[in-house]
């Protein structure tokens, strides 16, 4: 059994969207095999035991795929390691006695609900504005009638692995959602399905993205570097190209 370790936490506490928040200090006995969220479970157990209010944080699958967990840890979305989500981070990535600062995603388009939980419905609305192929159930042709070369399918898949967690927005100095939108636009523009709405889709999605209050991209690349799924920056150039083409076509 690995020995226990102790960490000091500075956790953002905020009662609700309107309230002013502040950092609170806690110290937690943990061990290296614990996941970061399990360490928060321990903290909450402790807080409940002491008659205090536990820290609200979003989490669900705890295996890195649902996209629900969302903590900025020492300034990095999903913590210091690359290509993983917060729930996949383990305490062995920290040292005994470390002080760890934990904050919510911060962006006006992701208002804080409470403590570390934020509202990411803006992402849903972007998808609702055009992130789909307009095909009603029952309208499909036989699947093998649509041939897609393996490399195209693989590239589309790579873009489609986005989990919609919002780390890209939280990492971006401009709180831009271009990586998220670019991933969906790239996936759908690569595939033969839904080509008829290719141009209207990208314009609608970018309009919605702007309306939601995300910032403009300045190509810093922080989004891709922090993306737990490693969505490449090239999806943004694809988005730029698709959008510009559509606009120049008068869409």
């Amino acid at each position: 059994m690995k020995h226990s370790m102790k960490v000091n936490l500075q956790v953002w506490r905020q009662k609700n969207t309107q309230a002013q928040g502040n950092f609170e200090n806690y110290s937690v006995e943990t061990n290296p095999d614990m996941s970061f969220l399990e360490m928060f479970d321990v903290l909450n157990e402790q807080l409940i035991h002491d008659g205090k209010e536990p820290v609200a944080f979003d989490h669900d699958c705890r295996e890195g795929i649902c996209g629900m967990c969302s903590m900025v840890i020492n300034g990095n979305p999903h913590g210091p390691k690359q290509a993983i989500t917060t729930c996949q981070l383990h305490m062995r990535s920290f040292n005994d006695g470390d002080t760890i600062v934990v904050e919510p995603w911060r962006a006006n388009a992701f208002p804080v609900i409470k403590d570390l939980s934020v509202n990411r419905s803006s992402f849903d609305r972007i998808i609702a504005s055009g992130g789909f192929v307009s095909v009603n159930t029952g309208n499909a042709v036989d699947a093998n009638n649509i041939l897609i070369p393996k490399d195209i399918a693989d590239e589309a898949f790579e873009a489609a692995t986005c989990i919609g967690c919002g780390a890209c927005v939280s990492a971006c100095i401009n709180a831009s959602a271009m990586l998220f939108v670019g991933a969906k636009v790239t996936q759908l523009s690569l595939l033969p399905q839904g080509q008829s709405e290719r141009q209207s889709r990208v314009v609608a999605m970018v309009n919605q993205m702007d309306a939601e209050g995300f910032g403009a991209c300045t190509n810093t690349g922080a989004c891709s570097a922090e993306c737990p799924k490693g969505i490449p920056l090239s999806v943004i150039s694809t988005l730029n190209r698709e959008y510009t083409k559509a606009k120049l076509n008068g869409i």
Binding site: V133, V135, T137, A140, A143, A153, F157, Q187, Q193
Partner: peptide
């Protein structure tokens, strides 16, 4: 069988062979 057709039509990127079939 219809499920696969429907999902492909929606743009679900299933694994493909080099010839483009599923």
């Amino acid at each position: 069988t219809s499920i696969i057709d429907q999902c492909v039509a929606q743009g679900v990127p299933f694994a493909r062979e080099y010839g483009g079939t599923l």
